[in-house]
Structures are given as C-alpha cells and as structure tokens.
Design a protein around this nucleic acid. Structure first.
Lengths: 158, 158
DNA sequence: AGCTAATAGTTGGTTATGACAACAATAGTT
DNA sequence: AACTATTGTTGTCATAACCAACTATTAGCT
C-alpha cells in the first residue's frame, strides 16, 4: 500500500516539476519565479526572508529571484518605514494579472478533474495533501532529512 | 475548491522537492540520480532513452546521470547483443541495496501516515494520484503546456 | 549490395539554479 | 557608545539541464 502510494506520489511530483518547467516559459518566467510570484500575490506582501522561507530557498537566492521579478515589473520593492533593513515585496498590477493568468487554466483543469470525485472525498483529498505537507515540513525542519548529517547543514535556509 | 487543491498540491510538491534535495545526499546521490536509480531498479533494465522518457529529461542528461551512477557502481552498462546501438542499464547489487535503503524509511513513514485514513480512502488516494499523473502527462505529451509555443519545443525529450 | 534514413548515445557549450560565505546597513542591548 | 543580531545583497562555485552537433549502428529502399 505504502509502496503504491510512494510510486504514485513520486511520479506525480516528477510530472508536475516537468509541467511547471514548461508552463513557466509561457509568461517568460522561471519555475522559481512562478512560485515566488504566486507566494507574494497570495500573501499580498512579503519580505525577502519570508519569501526564502516560503520557498525553502536560501535568502540570497530569494533575493535574486525577487530582483528578476522586479525587473520584469511583476513585483515592487518598498523599504519599511520603521525598520530600514526590511524590504517588502509587493505585487504590481501586472504581476497580479500574470499570476491570475497562470493560475486560471490550472484551476479549470483541477476543477474538472475533481468533479469526478464526490464532495466528501474531494475535501478529504485536500486535507490529506495538507497533512502530507505538514509531515514533510516537520521532518525537514527537524533538520534536513532522516539520515546522515544531522548537524550544521540547513542552518541558513528557512 | 480547486483553489484549495491547487494550493495544497503546489506546496506539497515544493516541500517534497526540498525534502528530496536533502535526502539524496544521504547516500551520496543527487536527486535525479535517486529517481534514476529507482527507475532502473523498479524496471530491472532500461535503455538510456527509456530512462530519459521515464524521468522527463533530455537523453543527454539521462546519459550523464546514468554515467554518474555507473561510476558509483550502482548501475552497470551492457550493450545489446542484437542491436549494437542500445545500452542497457542494469542495477548492481549495491545499487539495489542502496535503493532499498532509500526507500525503506520513506515507506515506513508513508505507512504510518496512511494508517490514519480508512482503507477505502487510502485506495482512493492512490487512484487519484495516478489519475493526476496521467492527466498531467497527457497534457505534457500533447506538447508542453497549455499556452504559448505549441511548436518545435519538446521534440527531443521523452 | 549500396546508399540513404532513422535511431541511440555521447560530447560540447550554454544557461539557470541554488548554496555558502563575506559584506553593508540597520536595529537592539547593555 | 560599543557590541551583537538581523536583513538583505553580492561574489563565487557546483550542479543540473537543455540544445545542437557528432558518432556509431541499424533499418529501408531501389
């Protein structure tokens, strides 16, 4: 059972990664930029560090990803009034529009796909996904994986 | 609903990607090498092209990934008797052992996680995952994504 | 048989991704 | 005021992946 689950999940992840690689180009964005844009649009506002944590990336990488999106005029940087260190990332109108465009056909597809399951099951699926995410995240936060190197690594990200 | 589903799924994928990044190092393998090893072990035997298709990678990348695993003595190359062009990838004993090791704790974790859902639901989950995979794959095969560039791209991979 | 596809893998070159470390600027603490 | 912590940026490096060009086989025609 766990076997089948593993099989299905890992293949699914791979297909999705691939799909995202392809999809991203559609709007002249890298995969990571896509994720970042979605994050900022969903949250409305994020600091670079928050973005890094959200995407499980190093803050330096997050910074560069953000810069890319600023260049493409999808995000805007704004320094915090109180704390001069903070840089808030805000979606521009264009950023919001692109994000909506990227998401809309995806949502349509999902909606269609979910239709064939009954409502109770659909709800359970979402619950499961969240549960999975929580579990994995916990493991990751506990310090990077189950085996080996339990030490130092992972200090700077998230 | 589709919204919640998308949210959960995309976050899940991201966490898993991150988890895999961390986990892989445990056995001195890259994430892709892990996937490749699993593929070959599961299938018992694969050509480079088959591996590429399986992982949604360019054949050149697949070739290099395979070489990496051969160097680490987890895979073995063998030319086909009939068709001299074909290179079969076969798992070594060591490869099989490592693959088992990588998978075992993962499976234990999944088993534990699945326990809290009742059997019928568990089965449905797997079904859904497969369904998702199939849908995405179909979309991808149809030629790389929903929008833009419907042409040339994607010809050489898969 | 002999010439021309087509196919399987490999190699070269380029880009992108992301980590780590060092740094600057700001904020808090004693 | 001096030290420390935090936030973000920049420099540098390794890896992963793509595409294109190439080699070596094999298959298909005539």
């Amino acid at each position: 059972m766990a076997q089948a689950f593993n099989e299905a999940l890992s293949e699914l992840v791979r297909v999705i990664q691939f799909r995202d690689r392809d999809r991203a180009c559609c709007h002249d964005l890298s995969v990571t930029q896509c994720y970042a844009l979605k994050g900022v649009v969903d949250e409305g506002k994020m600091t670079v560090n928050e973005l890094a944590a959200h995407l499980y990336l190093d803050k330096s990488t997050a910074s560069r990803v953000a810069n890319g999106l600023v260049e493409k005029e999808m995000l805007e940087k704004r320094r915090d009034e109180q704390d001069g260190r903070l840089v808030h990332l805000l979606p521009t109108e264009r950023g919001r529009r692109v994000q909506r465009a990227i998401e809309s056909d995806l949502l349509a597809e999902y909606a269609e796909l979910l239709e064939e399951f009954d409502p109770a099951f659909r709800a359970a699926i979402v619950k499961l996904m969240r549960r999975l995410r929580k579990t994995f995240r916990a493991r990751v936060d506990a310090s990077g994986g189950s085996c080996c190197f339990v030490g130092d690594r992972g200090g700077s990200r998230a």
